[in-house]
């Protein structure tokens, strides 16, 4: 079949990058026992801030850095609302999503005097590593992505190490499973939660930056269009474990890439665009029987 070519693999990697970054970031919050539904809002903020600061400073790297900082600051503010003010995690996250939609539009007008969208003067470069071509078959596919794509792959070994091989990871897992017990062992539960949410913020910001600066070269209103929710679904389906989440996000990326590919074959685009969402629902349904045990089974956890 012609559609199952190597270039499909390559575009899977491209489409999956923001999903992987956001989902890997999201799992940090979940490891700390924070049900973080803000990924969508954080990604949107991340897209906008990275473009805004790139426009303002004229330097892509400064744009990325300041974008990540602002996005992380906003993530921590949400953290304050749920950790210290006791707000419902899902309700407040939806508020955060609306705040992101309104806030990005507002700032685009206020700071950049633009409506609808803003072009970035600079884009993330495609990196070509000659030695990668030496890898048989996949060499050409693995090559030629943005720095953030490679970074998204690095998150897997990095997060596995941090979560399972560092004292911080030990605290993180303890806080996520039994916060009172962690507190009794002298772990600063608030610090662990805030830091986990901040890491989610950094990752989602980079995910948004990949969309805006890596793929499109611009920011448009509500450009994340549910990708953050798909990333969230990956966190849930992957049971917030790094390897599983990574693979699920990659799979969702494949669904997206397949959609793009099939569109080129003259199939109705409206229906095709629903494919990733349908797949997410199916996957959630198949995983749900273990992740959410509810009233009907008679075993509800808190």
């Amino acid at each position: 079949m012609e559609i199952l070519t190597l270039s499909l693999v390559s575009s899977t990697l491209v489409v999956a990058t923001p999903l992987i970054l956001a989902a890997m970031g999201g799992l940090f919050s979940h490891q700390a026992g924070i049900f973080n539904f803000t990924l969508e809002g954080l990604m949107l903020f991340g897209s906008f801030f990275s473009v805004m600061f790139t426009v303002l400073t004229g330097n892509l790297w400064v744009g990325l850095l300041l974008g990540a900082l602002s996005c992380t600051a906003l993530a921590v503010i949400w953290g304050w609302v749920v950790v210290d003010l006791g707000a419902d995690q899902i309700i407040s996250a939806l508020g955060f999503m609306l705040l992101a939609q309104g806030g990005t539009v507002f700032l685009m007008i206020a700071v950049l005097s633009q409506t609808g969208g803003v072009f970035s003067p600079l884009q993330l470069d495609i990196i070509r590593l000659p030695w990668l071509n030496a890898v048989p078959v996949l060499g050409s596919v693995l090559n030629g992505h943005t720095l953030l794509t490679y970074l998204s792959w690095l998150t897997l070994p990095l997060f596995l190490f941090v979560i399972y091989r560092t004292p911080y990871g030990l605290s993180l897992r303890a806080v996520g499973e039994k916060p009172e017990a962690a507190a009794a062992a002298g772990i600063n539960v608030r610090f662990v939660r805030y830091s986990a949410i901040a890491i989610t913020g950094v990752c989602c910001s980079l995910a948004g930056a990949q969309l805006a600066l890596g793929l499109l070269g611009m920011f448009t209103d509500n450009m994340t269009a549910g990708r953050g929710i798909i990333a969230f679904a990956a966190v849930i389906f992957g049971r917030h474990r790094p390897l599983q989440v990574f693979l699920v996000a990659l799979f969702f990326g494949f669904a997206g890439a397949l959609t793009d590919r099939l569109q080129g074959f003259g199939l109705p685009s409206e229906l095709l665009l629903t494919l990733p969402y349908v797949m997410t629902v199916v996957v959630l349904a198949l995983s749900g029987w273990r992740t959410f045990t509810r009233a009907q089974s008679g075993h509800v956890k808190a």
């Binding site: 897992r173 303890a174 499973e177 017990a181 062992a185």
Partner: peptide
């Protein structure tokens, strides 16, 4: 109430 973390 045991303050052990089951998963560890």
């Amino acid at each position: 109430h045991f303050s052990l973390i089951d998963a560890l």
